[in-house]
Design a protein around this nucleic acid. Structure first.
Lengths: 226, 226
DNA sequence: CTGGTATGCGAGTCCTGGCTCGCGTCAGGA
DNA sequence: TCCTGACGCGAGCCAGGACTCGCATACCAG
């Protein structure tokens, strides 16, 4: 235990366990403290942004002292990481669940339902989404975000591999899933954050068109070389 | 002039002219100094990342004193903004030029050529792209990035409006352009930065499929409701 | 009850880094 | 040549903020 303290030099923040908690809360009291830290940290992030996210500020908002905070988190980044992780897992869970529920189905309705689930998940905490995407340096979340994307990509690839009945050319499902997931993800995020003048159901329609059009795009557009 | 100094309180960084230079360099000597600041700032960004980007560091790398730096830049962010602006304009110019050159053409070859131009522009300075996308807080560049995207979206929308000969349903070109540009942009950026195991020409093929498939996706996938 | 441990405290340390300011130097017009 | 303003210098100011440490208090086992 306490591996973070035994290291001779301070490990870089990219290091795998630089964010590992110092010790586990044993009593109910301390578990409540950790929860308060996370909750208050989230509030600070939402109300004042990442720039104002200082450990003193969080401790103050949580009604505890800075020292207590450092009993369970090795540094400031670990707190942010914990908050973002929880959020990330939420979104990931919702989208993955929506996909798994409809692995048997095919066609526009299925695609639309999944896109809808994604939009809903993002809208639910649009404010935190904004902080994560527009204020945090992306490098910190790169790993977490990649994991989320990979999870969904794997599901989509599996779905494609299973249900390609009547598909003309057997393109690599992993590549197709990569394209599909990244395209849809970015559109969904941007729609929620930038709020362009496009109604929700229009966006859903377009996401369906984009996805199905891409999946069926094998007559005429195939190996078009320059 | 010197509007930044007359303000009673320091303006927030979101303010329109918080990044405006304090004074214009008049003599050749000072113009060279500004260039050196920008060049060294870029180097620091590339070699050590945004975290190490301090004004003292930049001044040191440029071989000038911190004071000189503040003669032309009101604050640290202005230097970063200037560097990113220049880069942003470069990419924007290349993509826009590629589009304009082919406004008359139609079909896979045209789409592929434009996608190729985008990939090339991004690959050219992949290291700076990484810094911009993964280290800078996105909020700072949000405006600049939105401008870039809007410029391309307008071009695409104009192209669509002009060349929709034989298109079945007249969807809103602005919406279609929004979808197309954001989807393709994100895929291109992610491909360059994450380097997934997908060959370059395969990515181009898929981008073409995605775009054309989406544009022609009006049989069967139209108003699919949940 | 009692000793040990887990928890909590918060003033204070210390360092980073943005930014200044008073003073020298240089360039170019008159 | 001289003189004015542009240019440059760099030690240092100062605020903010991450993090500590010695001590008080609360919990729980025996």
């Amino acid at each position: 235990m306490l591996s973070a303290m035994t290291a001779p030099g301070p490990p870089p923040y990219g290091s795998p366990d630089a964010l590992r908690p110092r010790k586990q809360p044993r009593q109910a009291r301390s578990r409540a403290t950790v929860d308060r830290i996370l909750a208050s940290g989230r509030e600070v992030l939402l109300s004042d942004g990442y720039d104002a996210f200082s450990t003193n500020r969080v401790a103050d908002a949580a009604g505890i002292s800075p020292g207590s905070l450092y009993q369970y988190f090795p540094n400031k980044h670990a707190i942010v990481a914990a908050i973002v992780d929880r959020y990330s897992d939420d979104v990931s869970d919702q989208v993955a669940a929506s996909l798994v529920d409809r692995l048997g189905e095919v066609g526009p309705a299925m695609v639309r339902a999944c896109a809808d689930a994604l939009l809903t998940a993002l809208e639910e905490n649009a404010d935190l989404l904004r902080v994560v995407f527009e204020e945090l340096p992306a490098r910190q979340n790169a790993a977490r975000r990649a994991a989320l994307e990979r999870r969904v990509q794997d599901l989509v690839a599996a779905y494609l591999a299973a249900s390609r009945a009547g598909e003309p050319s057997p393109r690599q499902p992993t590549v197709v899933a990569w394209v599909l997931v990244l395209a849809v993800e970015n559109l969904a995020v941007r729609w929620v954050l930038d709020a362009p003048p496009i109604p929700r159901d229009v966006v859903l329609d377009e996401l369906v068109r984009l996805s199905l059009g891409y999946l069926q795009a094998d007559r005429g557009a195939g190996g078009a070389s320059a």
